[in-house]
Design a protein around this nucleic acid. Structure first.
Length: 584
RNA sequence: GCGCCCGUAGCUCAGUAGGAUAGAGCACGAGAUUCCUAAUCUCGGGGUCGCAGGUUCGAAUCCUGCCGGGCGCGCCA
């Protein structure tokens, strides 16, 4: 049990006692009572708003409840003092031994520290990347890829049974165009002269040429197949080839998704028809005519009756079409079937990670999931804003049409997956992110990856130092766990310990909010605190971590910073970043 | 025109699902290296949290309206 839930339990118990002895009326709802560390550390270790929240329902003044509750809490051995402050807060100071004990918890748990079983093994499906296999992944995809992957790890850490998934959009128009692009490239490779102008509107990437070569190896005569067969062959070849490349690139980023669901397979299987039949049977599908969008009317707008889903019944703004005029399903229709498929596979919690350009699609998908699962499944769509690629402050221009996209592969090869992954998580997912190639490779505190890694490396550096100066001091985790932590009395040390002890709380709240970036901010703050403490040892020799003349004190301090390194490692593990032990 | 996201220090952003005197970094100014990595640290100035109302013990946070920016808006995915 974490120190936070322990103290919360004390507050709850104290409230129960006050109900028992008549100080508080029975039947109060304690749901809004919180117990958390105050923003301002001078207020103490923990604070509770219980008196203010309960004053009105209990029919008494906040101060009176606060005084009584504080008196009750102060009796407890774990709580050194309880003071009423401000409008009715109760500030608690804890027995420092409680905090120190957390160091032992970290050493025992290792990098697994901060994990929990809050999720209770509930199945969560998180779908991310899901880029169309019409080209290689570029840096625009990297953010969603890393975000989804880190969120998955984060949820796994707090006890969810997480499945990572990629939805392959291998049906529809774009794939037809891809197939035709492949055929053009095939003819080109066969010696035919095809002017660039003929590639207008097709996929120009070099990877399509590679795919055509692969097609030649698969079947040297594929170009002479009858038109329909050739097209089908080209589709299959192109998609298979590009998916292999995409998966390779993701693997380079440290991402491996366990499920790849094919849109084409869902369609071929009849899943779309079945899903829509279900909606039909509930009266949620009708044929109607939509109003043209106001303000911006498409030039080729014509009124036509369409097959529509009653999305407005589920909070959407308009009803949404399910069929194209050529009789094919819309992307939305297949997506309904896909989400139903996920639900049927046992996932009541679904997370989709999408790019900013799909933001307008969120409401209808939520409506659809609500309708198709009869409210049984919860969908959370996380939108990742754009990544602005920069170099030394100047924007790097990227245009798919001009063919000068910056691919994930290039960047990972150049600066490494760990840097890319960490930087992508240093902003809230729905805020735009600047990714400056010069800055992220810089070795300074400007660069959060470096700064955090350096803190981790510095801990190891201190250990190397200790091994030199006190060679016979045992420094394995078991020995460190035996250290006499009572020797850690300096305010800087206690502050560091409290920060370390706060890690499970951060993990918990980040997981609940589906916001992995909170870990990045915590890691940065923790690194800063450690660097500051380290420097204090420069001014005051008594605060140095390695004290040649005092083995016991050194052991206690090393236990503390070992715990700190483990917490950093724990965070980096969620991010899929390798902690470094040396930075020379 | 409608919907979603956003508006916090000169700049880039946090702000722990409503808490106490709103925080970091950059930039700017002043300092710290016989010593565990100065790739670091310390101190300082800097704000009507876009504007106006509302909800309540209490609002950057929730509600309404306006202003400003981004994204999207039938048969693309």
């Amino acid at each position: 049990m974490s120190i936070f839930s322990e103290i919360r339990r004390h507050v709850m118990a104290a409230l129960d006692e006050m109900v028992a002895d008549g100080t508080l009326p029975a039947g109060l709802d304690f749901g809004r009572v919180n117990v958390e560390p105050p923003r301002d550390p001078s207020h103490g270790d923990m604070a509770t708003n219980a008196a203010m929240v309960l004053a009105k329902p209990a029919g008494s003044k906040p101060r009176d409840i606060a005084e009584a509750l504080a008196g009750e809490l102060a009796k407890r051995q774990e709580i050194d003092s309880a003071e009423v402050a401000g409008p009715g807060f109760i500030n608690l100071r804890l027995d420092p031994a409680l905090w120190r004990r957390c160091i032992g918890d970290v050493l025992a748990a290792g990098a697994a520290y901060g994990g929990s079983d809050t999720g209770g093994g509930a199945k969560v499906n998180i779908e991310y990347v899901s880029a169309n296999p019409t080209g290689l992944l570029h840096m625009g995809h990297a953010r969603g890829a890393v975000f989804g992957d880190a969120l998955a790890s984060l949820l796994a850490k707090v006890g969810y049974d997480v499945t990572r998934e990629y939805y392959v959009n291998d049906a529809g128009n774009q794939i037809d165009i891809l197939a035709e692009s492949l055929i053009k490239r095939g003819r080109q490779l066969a010696g035919e002269t095809i002017p660039d102008s003929e590639f207008e509107g097709f996929y120009p990437g070099e990877e399509v040429i590679d795919a055509a070569r692969a097609a030649n190896e698969e079947d040297p005569d594929w170009l002479s197949l009858p038109d329909g067969d050739r097209h089908a062959f080209a589709r299959r070849q192109a998609v298979d080839f590009l998916m292999v490349r995409i998966r390779e690139d993701l693997a380079h980023l440290g991402i491996e998704q366990e499920i790849y669901t094919s849109e084409a397979a869902l369609v071929a299987d009849g899943a779309v028809g079945r899903a829509l039949d279900t909606l039909e049977s509930r009266g949620l599908i009708y044929t109607g005519v939509l109003e043209p969008p106001k303000g911006k009317k498409p030039d080729d707008w014509e009124e036509r009756p369409q097959t529509l889903f009653r999305a407005t019944d589920f909070g959407d703004d308009v009803d949404r079409p399910l069929k194209k005029s050529n009789g094919e399903w819309t992307y939305f229709a297949t997506d309904i079937a896909y989400h139903l498929d996920k639900y049927r596979r046992g996932f009541a919690t679904l997370i989709d990670v999408w790019g900013a350009d799909h933001g307008g699609y969120v409401k209808r998908m939520n409506a659809a999931v609500d309708a198709i699962t009869e409210g049984e499944a919860a969908l959370d769509v996380k939108i990742c804003q754009l990544v602005n690629l920069m170099d030394k402050g100047e924007p790097v221009k990227m245009s798919k049409r001009a063919g000068n996209v910056v691919t994930i592969r290039e960047v990972v090869d150049e600066i490494g997956k760990d840097v890319v992954r960490f930087i992508m998580l240093t902003r809230k997912n729905d805020a735009p992110l600047d990714f400056d190639f010069a800055k992220v490779t810089e070795q300074s505190k400007d660069n959060p990856v470096f700064y955090v890694q350096y803190a981790h490396a510095r801990v190891h550096s201190v250990f190397r130092q200790a091994r030199t100066t006190i060679p016979d001091l045992p420094l394995d985790d078991e020995s460190l766990a035996e250290a006499n932590l009572e020797l850690l009395t300096d305010p800087g040390e206690l502050a560091l310990i409290k920060t370390i002890a706060g890690w499970p709380r951060i993990v918990e709240s980040a997981a609940e909010a589906h916001e992995p970036h909170r870990l990045a901010f915590y890691l940065n703050d923790t690194a800063a605190e450690f660097h500051a403490h380290w420097n204090r040892g420069k001014d005051e020799a008594g605060l140095r971590l390695v004290v040649d003349s005092d083995r016991e004190l050194t052991l206690a301090r090393l236990a503390m910073i070992r715990a700190l390194a483990l917490v950093i490692a724990s965070g980096l593990e969620v991010f899929g970043v390798m902690p470094v032990e040396e930075m020379r």
